[in-house]
Amino acid sequence: MFLTVNEENYVHSGDGTIGALLAELGAKPEHSALTVNRDIVFSKDWKSFKLNDGDTVEVLTFVGGG
């Protein structure tokens, strides 16, 4: 499945669930927030959510800030 993840072309070889994508990226699910095609996908919906070919995904986390 071809995706854009954090503005880079990305080939996802899992089952298209959020969990599979985060595992592939090495991102901890409990430390990640997510948008797909600019819409927020809340963690409560991750299990039922399926990514589609061509989706644009943003994976976000906390960094230092004032």
Binding site: L60, T61, G64
Partner: peptide, 12 residues
């Protein structure tokens, strides 16, 4: 306070 930024695969 904390800021929200894109996850960096190179610096997980």
């Amino acid at each position: 306070t904390v800021a929200l930024r894109r996850f960096n695969r190179d610096k997980p």
